[in-house]
Design a protein around this nucleic acid. Structure first.
Lengths: 178, 178
DNA sequence: CGACACATGTAACACGTTACATGATTTG
DNA sequence: CAAATCATGTAACGTGTTACATGTGTCG
């Protein structure tokens, strides 16, 4: 969904051809969510099939220019008008993984937590470094970066709370007073 | 991916048939990430095709029991041994949406931010209530709930930081000293 | 010339999702 | 009996992803 709507958003600023969409999308999101060039074209044809964009001839250089249709504009407005619901986010692999790890024989949950924590902390350092080196001008990219940072921080906090919970639980199992 | 691995994790505890997998998965994740029953069967056949599970005849009640194969067990161990990388998480729709909203004509980014903030706060209240009513016994479900809570909190914080950034930006554009 | 960026596209596949068909068993 | 729950499956579709084929233009 994000790719479709993302392309619509870019086309709203200005009609463009596929390759341009690719570079622009990469710029805007700081390359955080890489998008295979092939997918641009597949998505464009699907958007055209659904009447959201229009293959509006070429620009004199032989480039296939796409433009928003009215339906596309409506769709885009609806996207911005509707908050992203928790329900339509993809399943959180990490949460599922830890929840299920609890009852799988031969897997030490605390090891899993620790390994993840280390990896996430490394990510966090990397993101902070990127933020430091980022210019203040690219607002879109800064927002995206911040989003990743806030999420990584939350993940570390969550992992810590998991560990605490696991300790309590272990204590409980061993009959120690909580 | 999470569905496939999730089913493997459940089957590691004990061989089961499709319907059982459905209920168990729902229990463990507290119904947070609903899983259509149909998908269980589709996924099971794909897992069988890939040699990760084995249709091990039926229990005396005519239920098609599936069990992990050795390959399946290896796959599962690998899952738990490898931290979830930032790169293989799905694109963050909200981050993309805000980043792109910045340059779409006729969309007030701050309105989008506010609408999302309201929705997320409501989610947060709901989640907190659920946590309050949850028993202390179901560790898996508590972890999953916490994960959602931490994420929602991070989202609110991020939205606030976005607003601040937007204000500064506006001030900057108006020539006011930052 | 060779390498590289620009540019477009398609085929095939993986995964998730829904809608639908089908039937057995239980229970108010 | 009717409704609900248990139980299995399939067809079709949407979206994302990769690999590949193909060609142009540019620059060292």
């Amino acid at each position: 969904m994000s790719v479709k709507l993302g392309l619509l958003a870019l086309l709203d600023e200005q009609p463009m051809y596929g390759y341009q969409l690719h570079t622009t999308f990469k710029e805007r999101t700081g390359g955080t969510w890489p998008l295979n060039i092939g997918q641009i074209y597949t998505t464009l044809s699907r958007l055209e099939r659904d009447g959201l964009v229009d293959a509006a001839g070429d620009d004199g250089d032989g480039h296939q220019i796409y433009a928003l249709t009215d339906a596309g504009r409506v769709e885009l407005q609806r996207w911005f008008a509707t908050p992203v619901a928790r329900a339509d986010r993809p399943r959180d692999e990490l949460a599922i993984k830890l929840s299920l790890a609890l009852s799988v024989a031969g897997v030490d949950v605390r090891e899993v937590v620790q390994a993840q924590r280390t990896a996430t902390l490394r990510d966090l350092q990397d993101l902070t470094r990127q933020k430091f080196h980022a210019g203040e001008d690219d607002l879109a990219w800064l927002l995206a970066l911040d989003s990743l940072i806030f999420q990584a921080e939350a993940e570390v906090r969550w992992l810590d709370s998991c560990e605490e919970r696991l300790l309590n639980n272990q204590a409980f199992k061993n009959g120690v007073r909580r």
